[in-house]
Every structure is written in structure tokens, then in C-alpha cells.
Simulated scan of single mutants.
Amino acid sequence: MNTGDGPFGPVVNGTQIVFFEYRPNEAAGYAFLALFGIAALVHLFFILQLRAWFCIALFLGGISETFGYYGRARASKDPSQVGPFIQQNLLILVAAPFLAASIYMSLGRLTVGLGAQRHSVISVRWMTKIYVLVDIGCIGSQFVGSIIPASGDPDAIKNSRIILIAGLIVQLSALSLFIFTCWHVHTRVKRNPPDMLLENPALQWEKYFWAVEGMTGLMLIRSMVRSIEYLQGEGGFVISHEVFIYLFDAVPMLLIMVILAVVHPGRLIRQVRGFKALQ
């Protein structure tokens, strides 16, 4: 076991490859393991209860976060080991695009459910596909960028950061366009309600759009801080302080899962189906 104070990482050809600038906090890792594990199980229940299959990506994201923070807890014992470092780095990074995919699909389901397709800037049929394809690209880039450092080669680690930054910037751009798309549909529906809302004025639809916009905002904050972290590189202020990964990654991602549990789009979709069945 490495009992020093950091930085931690293997020594390759006489050069230390830095995995962590500090010893990861074991208690914090296990705490978020438990929180994400509970959130993932709650969403699994809602997927089955509401038949909200579009939220499977959210469940996978929650599982990734759970085992990612397990990796951080494991890394506390010996931060120089490759396995726990790759586990936490890969799974925590990959979890975000899974959660983002569920947010994208939520807007598509809400728009179609309310019959508000005409208010979307992008065709709803293509909107979800485009954003999810972007997300798959982000998952791929973050997967590759997280695995490469295992080689211990300094050039490979440098290249992995470039790949990760590129993936994060693409995700940041997609989220910015998406929040505008959501806001546009939201405001147009409010000004010119579709028939479903005119016939059922008691339907509490607006809180679902606020939820999607709030979750996208949290995702934007997370992506911006992560981009700054990798742009600063080794020894940077963000990467050198563990509080940032919890405050600007773990907490926002957990809040997204909590918001989607409290204001689940599947409930509105089920209400809409019930109204249509009565007509």
C-alpha cells in the first residue's frame, strides 16, 4: 500500500505517471456508491411500473456512477493501482452521456405526448436520434480517453486528455443547443397550446419542461467544470482538489436522477394516454 500524501501513480521508465494528486476519500466514495445505487434501483422500479423504456439509459448511467464511485473508494487504499483508477475514471465519465440521453429522450416523449411536434425547431423524429448519436460519440471518446492512460505512456496520457476534451466540448455544444430547443418548445406550447392541453387544461405539463431544462443546466455545469479540469491538465487547480468531482460531478448527476424520479415524464405520458382513451 502507498501511504504517502501524493501525487500517486506508477513509475514508468523513471517517470511517475500521475493518477491522483491526492488520496481519494474512501468514505465519500462509499457514500455516493450507496446514493447512486439506491437511485438506480428506484429508476428500475419506475421503468417497469411506467413502462418507461426510454429511461433504461438513465438506469445504466446510475449503475455506471455506482461502480465508478466504488472504484474511487477502492483507489483510496492504493491510489497507484491501475485497475481502480481506470474503473472510476471510465465509469464516472461514461455515466454522464447515458444520463444526457435520457434527458434528450424525455423531451421527445413529452413533445409527442402533448402533440406539440409543430413547435419543435428540429423534427422530433430526428431530434432524439441526432442527440443520442452525439451522445454515443461522446461515450466512445470518453471510453477511449479513459482507457488509454492504462498504458502508462506519457504521450498516450496526453492524447487521452485531448480525446476527452474533444468529447466534453462536443457534449457541451449539444447540451447548449438542446436547452435552446427545449426552451423553444416550452414557450411555444405556453403561447399556443396544442389540442391536448386545450381539452385538458388541468394537465400539469409545465413542470416537466422545467425539470428537463433544470437537468440540462446541471449537465452543462458538470461538462464545463470537467472541460476546465482537463484543459488545466496535470497539477491544475480543479484536478488537484477532490471536492470538485463531488460538488460539480457527483452532486449534479445525483440531482438529475432525483429530479427524474420526482418529476418523471412517464407519469405525464401515462396521463395523456388515459385522456386519449376516454375520448
Rank of each mutant, 00 (worst) to 15 (best):
I163V: 15
L164H: 07
L164V: 00
I165G: 02
A166S: 15
A166H: 10
A166C: 13
L168I: 09
I169V: 15
Q171N: 05
Q171K: 11
Q171M: 11
Q171F: 07
L172P: 02
S173H: 08
A174H: 05
L175V: 02
S176F: 14
F178A: 07
F180C: 05
C182Y: 00
H184P: 04
H184F: 05
V185Y: 01
V185W: 06
V185K: 03
H186V: 04
T187P: 00
T187Q: 13
R188T: 01
V189H: 07
K190L: 10
P193A: 00
P193C: 13
P194T: 01
D195E: 15
D195C: 02
L197S: 04
L198N: 13
E199S: 08
N200Q: 12
N200E: 12
P201F: 15
P201C: 11
P201Q: 12
A202E: 15
A202T: 09
W205I: 08
W205F: 08
E206V: 00
K207R: 14
Y208I: 10
W210S: 03
A211Y: 05
A211H: 06
A211K: 02
A211R: 04
A211Q: 01
V212D: 00
V212K: 01
G214D: 00
M215A: 10
M215C: 14
T216S: 14
T216H: 06
G217R: 08
M219E: 06
R222D: 14
R222P: 00
S223T: 14
S223W: 04
S227D: 09
I228A: 12
Q232P: 03
Q232S: 07
E234D: 12
E234V: 14
G236Y: 12
G236S: 09
G236P: 01
F237A: 07
V238R: 05
V238D: 09
V238W: 11
V238L: 13
I239D: 03
I239G: 12
S240K: 11
V243F: 13
F244R: 05
F244W: 13
Y246V: 06
F248S: 06
